[in-house]
Amino acid sequence: MPLSFEKPIDDLEARIRDMQSYAEEQQVDMGEEVALLENRLATLTRDTFANLSRWQRVQVARAPGRPTAVDYLEGVLDEFTELHGDRTLGDDPAVVGGLARLGDHSVVVIAQQKGRDTKENIHRNFGMAHPSGYRKAIRLFDLADKFALPVLTFIDTPGAYPGIAAEEQGQAWVIAESIQRMSRLGVAAVSVVIGEGGSGGALAIGVANRVLMLENAVYSVISPESCAAIRWRDAGAAPQAAEALRLTAPDLLEQGVIDEIVAEPIGGAHKDPAGAVANVKAAVSSAFEGLRGLDRAALLTQRRQRFRKLGRFTEAA
């Protein structure tokens, strides 16, 4: 199902398909007409996506059919081998971890996984991790340090799960610990925000040397809906809240929160998952390449300073 602003694109695509099947059935050459419409389609798609409002980007970031973390694990990495469990509480399906090869190097990967359909969404708790998920991340950070393996994380979560058990098991404590543990990695770490970067639950695996973000992903301190409910006392004000929060990739690049925007295929990653995966693979490989010369101490210092200097204020005279 297309997003509401994709309707004209979708309609045009349908017209092209109709024309092609008509031409085939009737054995007539409509190549010129089709080419004309395809040209129009490309322009329309480019224009639509070049002018997305922030709220529309939120919808793209959450679009059904958008590649999920597992799609990137399969497409970007070789020999992905999943490792389960947090060694304390259980195994949280919202966080997928494991070992893999990226080019010529072994890496530890940690990813937040939403579902690709309703059934998987329920199994993955819509990508909302419990404390167990963060504990899994923490123990994988330990593993990475011990074997001096670079760490790659994929961020895609509405936020850490707000529930009774999650609170009792110290959701806040494990997020804080995960932030701290990741900041202390003696190996190169790269994070990619692929969909939704929902608040502290996202940052918990986002304390990397290089933070990349897909063009239509969003990363925010609070969801537009919750922000609207609190600040406007009206969840219907989510579009205004999305504007106010400045949560798109260009916004965050400008604020220094991310280091690089990874382009999506025209029409968004959901239109061309393979294209999105290829772009992420290239960007991740070059991000690690750029960190290759740094030793343990330099990586630690670079990462610490990167986050230490974030913020905007003025010094009083």
Binding site: R184, S220, V221, V257, G311
Partner: peptide, 22 residues
């Protein structure tokens, strides 16, 4: 919690305060 009127930079204070404790 974080001050949402300062957007993602308020979220980043979580990491900043954490690394400063080092």
């Amino acid at each position: 919690g974080a001050r949402m009127q300062e957007g993602a930079l308020s979220l980043m204070q979580m990491a900043k305060t954490t690394v400063a404790l080092e």
